[in-house]
Design a protein around this nucleic acid. Structure first.
Lengths: 130, 130
DNA sequence: ATGCCTGCAAAATATTTGCATGTAA
DNA sequence: TTACATGCAAATATTTTGCAGGCAT
């Protein structure tokens, strides 16, 4: 029983082969940003037996228990981020690539009267190109 | 020949009935935020003869010439904003409603070394609920 | 053994496109 | 009249879901 199996149990998710394998891809090498398409491609490269539907289902499962965050960049694909702490993003348009920014690096003070203090999330995406 | 016809001509768009009618809906009563679905619903209410495909085409035409801005809030529908000046957004989740924030209201200073000065767009969405 | 999970295909949703027709210039 | 826009339906793209079978407990 490896570490990710334990993490799945801690989040009340049954550690199936697909969840464990996708979990290793996602959490095995530092913070990552993926789309469902990218993750399916990677799992195919590793000859894992995972359907595209299961990739979607597992991403949603992980998101629902707080293992992943969603990032909305453009009007097509949804991105998933293994960093679930509060932070911001740079999107490198040329490369369709996301980079995290620590909230410490950018100070955003939102006047309370605008939001009545009921903030649930603050999304900041800085888009850059060359 | 009314005002919006003139605006269309200025943007090198032929002022067809559909573009003029949708333009009036969009720009006739202050700043607005709409999805393709909302705009189709409104044009149906006014008994305008516009197909859903044309609503999409016209929104894209207006976006491409700079009459509209796109806003990405969630992973489903794309929002269009009649305010094309640089600004930020509050998204009221309960009501699925967008509100503009002037960039003067929130100071965001992004360290140059993070972006190498190549910023093309800064998207800020503050999500609130009750 | 039981119930949750997966694969596959089909459905659902959002958006784009091809083509014949209509309309602005 | 000529080119561009529209309507409709079909195609495309992304994501979700139903169901039969499979695997974890």
């Amino acid at each position: 029983m490896n570490d990710f199996t334990k993490i799945l149990r801690n989040h009340k998710l049954r550690p199936t082969q697909q969840r464990v394998n996708l979990g290793k891809l996602l959490f095995g090498k530092g913070n990552r940003h993926v789309t469902a398409e990218i993750l399916k491609y990677e799992s195919d490269c590793e000859n894992l037996k995972v359907s595209q539907a299961t990739v979607y289902n597992v991403l949603n499962d992980f998101y629902n228990v707080g293992l992943l965050a969603k990032v909305n960049i453009d009007d097509d694909k949804t991105w998933y981020d293994t960093n679930v702490e509060h932070h911001y993003h740079i999107f490198i348009e040329d490369e369709s690539r996301l980079v995290d920014i620590s909230p410490d690096a950018i100070d955003i003070s939102i006047p309370k009267k605008l939001t009545k203090g009921k903030i649930s999330k603050v999304d900041l995406v800085v888009k850059i190109n060359s």
